[in-house]
Write a protein that binds this DNA or RNA. Structure first.
Lengths: 347, 347
DNA sequence: CTGAAAGCGCTTACAG
DNA sequence: CTGAAAGCGCTTACAG
């Protein structure tokens, strides 16, 4: 290992000091073009690779602001846990998180105010988990961009915005998995899907993926309902569904907090005829998994999304590079025998 | 961030030099008990936490030897990729991997020789992926242990050995998932399971988990076959199975390289009646997933196992701590619509 | 038993 | 435009 190429080695070879090499390598001003070229060539030919450990030791600390918009659910709690663990992993790399308060409801104005506060506090970057998309968000991100404050999105994307990247599950894939799981266990040919809110891009994607896959495999999607992640709305929507479409034998619930659907199904004694697939894992769902009303649930791993959001932000802050324009977290399929592994998991 | 507690802060507070603090904190000899106690107390009260970045910068390089025993399959290739990526992540932490050659067959003697070679080369730790378990392995690990060379196992455990930890899928859980997936899509009540070799602890666990879960849910496991991960043996075993137990409607193939089972099923035109669940993902399996002969496959993520093995070894080498006595990697369920995400994946 | 000094590979003022 | 010096927070010989 004694053979690692350092800035000093390059300095010796090119007859300048390591300070000059540093400047050339990091594109700082005040290095003669010709010198710079020589240095860069030497670095390349010697296989130089900056030592990130040394860089972390001297770098000034980086502040990352965190804004999580609306809906205080298990999904958000896991997201936050992931972000916190991600920050903790980078503690010695001098990364600091600046959390803004969490809201139990969606308030566009508040979000904008919080982001502005973070800017004033001088954060180096912002991790933002948006709920619904709006023009103000796009404008705000544009503004931050021009102020050189990168924004990494998590759980959802904001199309046409200048965010650096987004870490999220692929909604169309989630919908497809829901459809395919139903194919495996559904008896009839008619289905329905429930989401929280069609204005949430992710939810629309789920509908699209579910519908496309269902049609492809010869199933009819008889109805799409919005539950606003409200258990009672879910309950009454299910009632309506089963009245209007008694031939339904498969339901995909593409959102959390909508176990009302299961309650209604059991109430009507239809739980042997109708197969249900759920989304994510949370306490209220367990009972229905244990009873086999819910055959499987699709876990979107918000914990991992949070963790990745932090590491991606760090990567961008320190190297100005990003893994990909969109980073998809694989949705996982949980059954009765393995869902427990995913509650409060670490990974 | 300027408020991080350093070794220097403790030194000032306790009126010694940072060298002494270092010794006290790291349990080095030649520190008076009383001084040590004072220092440790101060450190605790000040909330001291060693800076891992600084430690990595000065630590001498660590050599990790890698031995992968037998069977050169996609599973092993992904494992190796994981180990390599794990090592690469720790490049700046001065971690170096020393690979021994891979064998396409299982040779106990060769394994022992390779491990001994690594010891002579002076590695600081060994990552070992065993195939079958034997007393010689246990003895070898014991020997390494007394020479202060920690062994981290991956993909399987060696019970009663002095390995530091093992990173692996929970075989019983894999078997249970196989059984539960069959419950979702199987028509009849009789099943069979194929594994590579019952002497492989992991395979026996799969059988146990599968059988227990099947019985629990009212299914009969009519037969258990060993394929030796050989396609032709799998093919002929399937033939025998379907002759001896024509009522079989669900099959779990708990090992790779046994798609011969699927070939036989299709040949006999039974692919509409029999549901098959596979294990892991590799090229030969794709065709049967696409045709819906294999309804789902259980992915054991050897890539992640390899990556974790490296980080666990590093943790042990640098901090003498281990996350857990056994670290389970969650098996994931792949369907037709999402298996592609897992081929050559990074994560 | 305790301490003074050098060094890991960078970055950051500051001087020339 | 280039360089000399200090420093990040540890570990490692070496001296006392």
């Amino acid at each position: 290992m004694g053979n690692r190429v350092t800035i000093m080695d390059i300095a010796k070879k090119t007859n300048v000091t390591h300070t000059t090499v540093y400047k050339a390598l990091n594109n700082k001003q005040y290095v003669k073009e010709e010198t710079k070229k020589r240095i860069l060539e030497a670095a390349a030919s010697m296989g130089y690779r900056a030592n990130k450990v040394a860089q972390s030791l001297v770098r000034k600390s980086q502040k990352i602001g965190i804004v999580i918009e609306g809906y205080y659910s298990d999904y958000s709690l896991d997201l936050i846990r992931g972000i916190k663990d991600g920050l903790n992993d980078l503690f010695d790399d001098k990364v600091e998180g600046v959390f803004t308060e969490f809201e139990t409801s969606y308030d566009r104005e508040k979000t904008l105010r919080k982001i502005n506060d973070l800017k004033i506090q001088g954060v180096d970057g912002i991790i933002f988990a948006p709920y619904a998309v709006c023009q103000e968000h796009i404008d705000m991100i544009e503004l931050l961009y021009s102020d050189d404050i990168p924004v990494v999105l998590v759980t959802a994307d904001i199309p046409n915005s200048k965010r650096v990247t987004t870490i999220r599950p692929n909604g169309r894939l989630v919908g497809s998995i829901g459809a395919e799981l139903l194919r495996l266990c559904q008896k009839g040919k008619t289905r329905a899907v429930f989401v929280g809110n069609k204005n949430v891009v992710h939810h629309q994607e789920i509908i699209d993926g579910f519908t496309e896959k269902s049609n492809e495999e010869g199933y009819e999607v008889a109805a799409v309902y919005e539950t606003q992640d409200d258990d009672m709305i879910a309950y009454y929507s299910a009632e309506r569904l089963l009245k209007d479409h008694p031939q339904v034998s498969g339901i995909y619930i593409g959102t959390s907090h909508s176990v009302g659907v299961c309650r209604k199904i059991i109430e009507l004694g239809l739980d042997k005829q109708i197969s249900v697939i759920g989304t994510d894992i949370f306490n209220e769902l367990i009972e229905y998994i244990e009873k086999d009303t819910v055959k499987a649930t699709i876990y979107q791993n918000s914990y991992m999304q949070g963790k990745l959001a932090v590491s991606e932000m760090f990567k961008y802050l320190t190297e100005k590079i990003v893994t990909d324009d969109t980073i998809y977290v694989n949705p996982e399929i949980l059954l009765k025998c393995n869902y427990k592994q995913y509650m409060e998991q670490e990974r």
